[in-house]
């Protein structure tokens, strides 16, 4: 019996991107952990695989940093769940990190795009 859904198209999240994705998800409104996981998976068109254990650790880390806060509430299907909210500080972080991420991807994109043409031969 296989031990894991081995979908070859899924990629593990880059270090630090999980935080960004959580914050982005919570921007849409308060959500519990399972909802966050589903949302990330769905929105990335099932490309990202979120390790649920790591997700909760990440949520706890963000809570400790006061970027998000949590409250026990009731889910849409009437289960008691812990809902996470974005704090003003978290909102600020999200915009900072988003800018940072965009600059990073642009830079990486630039390098990768130019990388196709060997530079030495242009001369």
């Amino acid at each position: 019996m296989s031990t894991q859904d081995s979908n070859p198209d899924r990629i593990a999240l880059l270090q630090g991107t999980l935080d960004l994705l959580i914050l982005r998800t919570l921007l849409l409104g308060p959500c519990h952990g399972q909802g966050v996981a589903r949302s990330i998976q769905r929105q990335s068109e099932e490309v990202f695989f979120v390790d649920h254990g790591s997700l909760y650790i990440a949520l706890q880390r963000l809570e400790d940093k006061k970027w998000i806060r949590a409250k026990w509430g009731v889910s849409e299907n009437n289960r008691r769940a812990r809902f996470y909210y974005l704090t003003p500080k978290g909102r600020e972080q999200l915009s900072d990190k988003t800018t940072e991420w965009q600059r990073l991807t642009r830079a990486v994109g630039l390098i990768l795009d130019s990388g196709g043409k060997p530079q030495g031969e242009e001369v």
Partner: peptide
């Protein structure tokens, strides 16, 4: 509290 949250998660996931 953390254990409780994980339990909830498993239930919610199972619901879905």
């Amino acid at each position: 509290d953390f254990a409780e949250e994980i339990r909830t998660h498993l239930e919610l996931e199972a619901d879905d």
